[in-house]
């Protein structure tokens, strides 16, 4: 999880990712943030995030992103 939080900070350090469970729905992160997050996650965890994973539910919280990363690593 620490690794994920570090990657998220690199994507955009201004966002408090732990502040909400509706990061996308509440517009705390936008599409440009999501593309930065995607690039950081792919590089940090050596995974490929395809389009089917790019849905708000997978980016709404740190936990959801962590679950997605675990699923893609399996």
């Amino acid at each position: 999880m620490e690794e994920l939080l570090e990657a998220l900070k690199r994507a955009n350090g201004k966002i408090d990712y732990l502040s909400s469970n509706k990061l996308v729905t509440d517009k705390i992160i936008d599409s440009i943030d999501i593309t930065s997050i995607l690039a950081e996650l792919e590089e940090t965890f050596d995974i490929e995030i395809s389009m089917e994973y790019i849905v708000p539910e997978n980016f709404d919280s740190v936990e959801a992103m962590w679950e997605m990363v675990q699923e893609l690593k399996d």
Binding site: S31, I34, T35, L38, A39, E42, I49, S50, M51, I54
Partner: peptide
């Protein structure tokens, strides 16, 4: 446009290679 143009392009191999 965000879902069907912007995301597919920003996650495309081309943009990743450029990065």
């Amino acid at each position: 446009f965000k879902d069907y143009v912007y995301y597919p392009i920003s996650t495309s191999k081309f943009v990743k290679n450029v990065a």
